[in-house]
Nucleic acid binder design. Structure first.
Lengths: 337, 337
DNA sequence: TTGTATGCGTTATCAC
DNA sequence: GTGATAACGCATACAA
């Protein structure tokens, strides 16, 4: 069926070794040999079997990208950049959705039935500290964390400064004269790093602005979808002293929150200013356009893939901590440019 | 390093054959043998090497999903469902982005350097008829087309009725009393099937409503992103006789068009009613919420994966043509429920 | 029911 | 610089 190295070797009257050399670009091959082999390759339309190459070399040329849900715009934007960055370095990308299923995450990391299917993992889901500990104990596969814990430098880690970014977002609202600044996206238990760090940054900004901390202004979000932002904002607006500004931990939450403000008969930014994080394209076209904290996703993806590649080629290289810059982008939802 | 069948066999004092039987669930294995082998597997923490399995069996357990851009919400939603549906049938999914690069598409289909990396392809990008012809000539890998040409039943094909769906969308606008109904998303040349069919459906609805066909009301869109919808709508609104309704071939185009209407100082749906297609979650939270044509994406994904699986297991099975139902969902952008 | 041996298509180690 | 050949880890035809 499929043409193999041996077929080419026979056709060109040389050994498989020589054909392999030509195919893999081994430098020490005489010109006439190379020409003969290449002619045979052309004639037989030969293409190497990657599966056999893998078995032999142990490398698969595939990276896994693990995300909670690929249809969350932030993750699909990330996936796009990761796929492109990986392609540039000769990798293909397999995407796994954990769907917030911790068991699924563990399986993916500790081997499960899927060992050796990829050379490394870009791990992006929310994850708890104890899960990371378990990973470190059991897993041996090269791993780069995207976002979340830096975890004592035991894993490569590429992310923004969550605390700082959240601080800047809330500080932006304060700088506009808003006094009752709410936050949406905290997580109830002390489980995940991202919401914790963002809450901390928010609180620091509140303190620095000389505002009162008000626990009732901090709202959890079970997930980071529009519906969660809508529900949380609706509750906030019903309270005795509603906020005049809301900092949402993601743009998607913010878009849901905006819709809730309109549904309550109020307007953005006049009654309530809103800021998100992620700089989704959707926010640029929303009405009003959404002020947000932008993080250079292409850069983040590129750095993550590079880190992972470095770890794959040299498993002993020290873990790196990469922080990608962020910046507030003022738009209409906080009163313009 | 890694434990192999042979290691397990030695540990359990049996042959590799027996271990293999146990691992692969071969029924005729005596109880004590099975127990001994399983104990050894447990003790050595053995896991089969999927790459070796593949080389041996020729099956990879991987499907490729080819899309133009994974960060277009329609395709990320599709990817989510495809990944889930594939997981249910024991497949993993590799995502490829063609980025509207026809050369890239051809490579993916006619083999390129990537042969035998997956068992089948779900092919979703826009594609021309001549490209499909070339595919049929050269490619041998199981393939299911999502959307686009049915192509004479030579490929399995899962899609909505594009012509009918477009007709229903435009007819919905006409039924609301709109007289100057524009369309955004046509493609200039006679290249792709989807825009052609949608244009045809639009024209049929215009005719049926007794309205005049007006070529200037049909606007092309280079891509299907918000920016394209914005640009096209802006032009339409500047014309001497601007439209009172716009049918956009995708929700993303519609969301861009809505923003353009606001930027022009007009309102939706009072001045211009807008309808899209795809039923993105984004449209449900937009202001005003976006009327759209919904197609059951989970169902489409499931059927596509099932078709592909059927073709993989039986390459001789006749090509199937599956049409997934659609329906108009009225929302605020056309004047409510 | 279980063991032995061969091959899937490569790469890489030896010789020459 | 090139040729023969042994793995890589698994599944299976054939034998027992």
């Amino acid at each position: 069926m499929a043409t193999t190295l041996r077929d080419v070797a026979e056709h060109a009257q040389v050994s498989v070794r020589t054909v392999s050399n030509v195919v893999s670009g081994y430098p020490h091959v005489s010109e006439k040999m190379r020409a003969r082999v290449e002619a045979a390759i052309e004639a037989l339309d030969y293409r190497p079997n990657p599966v056999a190459q893998r078995l032999r070399t142990g490398r698969t040329g595939v990276l896994a990208l693990v995300v909670p849900e690929i249809d969350l715009p932030y993750f699909s934007a990330l996936a796009r950049e990761v796929i492109d960055a990986a392609a540039l370095m000769g990798y293909r990308v397999m995407i796994d959705q954990t769907g917030h299923d911790h068991e699924r995450e563990r399986q993916l990391l500790t081997g499960g039935e899927r060992t050796m299917l990829f050379d490394g993992i870009l791990f992006s889901p929310l994850v708890t500290k104890s899960e990371l500990l378990e990973m470190e104990r059991r897993s041996t596969i090269p791993l780069v964390l995207l976002g979340e814990y830096s975890f004592d430098g035991r894993f490569d880690h590429v992310a923004i400064d969550n605390e700082g970014a959240a601080h800047d977002a809330a500080a932006h609202l304060a700088s506009l004269g808003r006094r009752r600044i709410a936050a949406i996206g905290a997580q109830p238990a002390e489980t995940y790093a991202t919401p914790q760090e963002r809450t901390a940054g928010y609180l620091r900004a509140v303190d620095e602005a000389g505002l009162d901390r008000d626990e009732s202004m901090i709202r959890p979000a079970a997930s980071y979808r529009r519906a969660d932002g809508h529900a949380a904002a609706t509750e906030l607006l019903r309270s005795a002293e509603p906020p005049d500004a809301i900092f949402c931990f993601t743009d998607l939450l913010a878009l849901g929150a905006m819709r809730a403000v309109f549904d309550a008969g109020l307007s953005v930014p006049e009654d309530v200013a809103i800021i998100g994080m992620d700089d989704l394209e959707e926010g640029r076209y929303a009405r009003p356009s959404l002020t947000t904290v932008s993080l250079d996703t292409p850069d983040l993806a590129r750095q993550a893939v590079e880190r992972l590649h470095a770890r794959i080629t040299d498993p002993e290289s020290p873990a790196a901590e990469v922080t990608v810059p962020h910046r507030v982008i003022p738009r209409e939802s906080t009163g313009g440019h």
